[in-house]
């Protein structure tokens, strides 16, 4: 049985957009935990760009904010079944 990759249904694949450029958000506050929770997974790791769809500039700001929040114990370094 040959392995055939099914075709990707173009309609389903919605184009990703950088929410920061779209909404004009300029500063990501490291103190705002519930906004940062959108960018980390259940174990508290930072989600990669290909999932969040952020542009490089804002993904850097996100990771910097998350690392600062971790330092000040607003976000955990590692967590199980968080959120």
């Amino acid at each position: 049985m040959t392995l055939v990759n099914e075709s990707v249904k173009r309609a389903e694949v919605k184009p990703k957009y950088c929410r920061f450029k779209k909404n004009g958000i300029k500063y990501i506050d490291y103190k705002d935990a519930d906004f940062l929770l959108k960018f980390i997974n259940e174990q508290g790791k930072i989600l990669p760009r290909r999932l969040t769809g952020n542009s490089w500039k804002y993904q850097n700001k996100i990771s910097q904010a998350v690392k600062r929040a971790r330092h000040v114990a607003i976000l955990p370094y590692l967590a199980d079944q968080m959120k």
Binding site: R19, N23, G24, I25, K26, D29, F35
Partner: peptide
């Protein structure tokens, strides 16, 4: 930097509905 100063002033004015909420407009 200049963006965070503007953000802090807006946060102090309580422009975001919850004091800590970051996104100024309801983002999708």
């Amino acid at each position: 930097d200049k963006h965070s100063i503007v953000y802090n002033e807006r946060r102090r004015k309580g422009e975001f509905n919850r004091t800590k909420k970051q996104a100024p407009r309801k983002e999708a």
